[in-house]
Design a protein around this nucleic acid. Structure first.
Ligand SMILES: [Mn+2]
Ligand SMILES: [Mn+2]
Ligand SMILES: [Zn+2]
Ligand SMILES: [Zn+2]
Lengths: 138, 138
DNA sequence: TCAGAAAATGAAAATCATTTTCATTTGTTC
DNA sequence: GAACAAATGAAAATGATTTTCATTTTCTGA
């Protein structure tokens, strides 16, 4: 993935710096839904001199490159995940422990298309977030 | 709806003041997805001395009373809608003009239950937001 | 009717995630 | 190596929302 990011940066006359590499590597290592702060803390362990700002900036670039997606569950800040991870999917979010489970359901996707068609609406993307209590917390 | 709000307030030893009445009335009049600021501006027309804070506080109370729902589309602030309005529904959001269209699809709801069941997940609520381009903007 | 207590109000300050600014450092080009 | 572009990190700014606080309003019970 780093190579794709480098390509994206080059196309824009930007550079793949040591800091950016570190941020991206750390991000990709944790196939999770990390907030900027969580990622910052992880990166900081390896390179304490890194700035908060650089993490934010790198995440923004990744999102622009479409290599990361920003998600907004209901905890007041954005969470990011690698775009390649599992392809498109939706989420089950536990209100007790905060765990996030991913799922895909072709049936739902098809029905969404149908709904959109009926409204003359052209879909670009969507978010289906199901909140509740996970198996472990019940 | 005002009566239900009053009941809720009374149960908590709170009061249905003139300001709260005005905010709630204005809110209910506009069966739309209003942001706090939009509502504030509408209320201000009728009562210029009203404070921003009161609008926020009233919306929060309405949400706690489950008479309003806060929605978070992707414009950086919360939008509210009366809870009774049309019952549960999901949204089609136009990325060009910002228009919001509501829909319900029983099939999708059922499939969500199925997905949840398969994961041992107990649903409390969910949000399905479909983004794209509306009929008028295509 | 009045005093005291509780709740509400609005302005201003605080909060918190995120973005911007800016002085300095690093990398690239010629 | 000089000149220029881009990147960095710290600190300040931003913007939506919440909190604080002094003041006002409302309610309760002599
Ligand atoms: Mn995911
Ligand atoms: Mn709606
Ligand atoms: Zn859980
Ligand atoms: Zn539109």
């Amino acid at each position: 993935m780093l190579d794709r990011f480098e390509k994206f940066l080059n196309e824009r006359g930007l550079r793949l710096t040591t800091q950016r590499q570190l941020v991206v590597r750390t991000f990709l290592d944790q196939e999770e839904h990390l907030s900027a702060e969580e990622l910052y803390l992880l990166v900081k362990k390896k390179a304490p001199e890194i700035g908060y700002t650089t993490v934010y900036r790198t995440l923004k670039l990744l999102a622009e490159a479409d290599l990361a997606h920003a998600r907004n569950f209901q905890d007041g800040f954005a969470r990011f995940e690698p775009a390649h991870y599992m392809g498109h999917h939706d989420h089950l979010i536990c209100r007790k422990c905060g765990s996030i489970t991913e799922f895909t359901n072709e049936h739902i996707e098809v029905m969404q298309e149908k709904v959109a068609r009926e409204h003359g609406f052209k879909i670009t993307d969507h978010t289906l977030d199901i909140y509740g209590v996970c198996r472990e917390c019940r």
